[in-house]
Amino acid sequence: MDFKQNYFELFQLPIAYQVDSHRLNDAYRELQTQIHPDRYAQGSEAEKLSSVQASSFVNEAYQTLKSSVSRARYLVELAGVAIDLSATTIADGAFLMQQMELREELEDASHSADPEKLLEKIAQQVHDNLADLVRSFSALSEPWDFNDLNVESVGQGAQLVYQMKFLEKLSIEIENIEQSLLD
């Protein structure tokens, strides 16, 4: 299967952080309509396998481009900088300080009288911070020319991605705590 093309090419979108979500959705649906395993229920085993692989690839591509965090990561990796989450190093001291404070608040919230209200406040904070990072990344990557990449700018982009992933993880933790309060 010829899946060497990148996710943007797959959906015939320009390689850029800003994505036209209507075009992405339409292209995704059009592709799945053609290749989904339901279209090959009467096919040979080879066709069924081929369809599952192609359909999985298209799903993965779609999910990656749909989320603003994973799209940023994908773009940085496409620009040649691998993101290794097991060895994250965040250089931004102010960001780290802010995160430590948020974590402390989260710790306190679980033991407070009205945890749900506090959790919601922290979740909102995380959400806002994430939105800021998305804006920064968008501005940073705007001038990227994939034929002539500015290595330093891409490196800064990678730093932003690490920060986004950091916040994403925190928001999953908040959700888990909220969930345990519901149960």
Partner: peptide
């Protein structure tokens, strides 16, 4: 099944082209 794999893959790629 094995010898028709390449044909199946070619059809899938053609389908993707058609979709787009």
């Amino acid at each position: 099944n094995k010898s028709s794999e390449a044909f199946a893959a070619a059809r899938m790629n053609a389908s993707i082209e058609v979709a787009l």
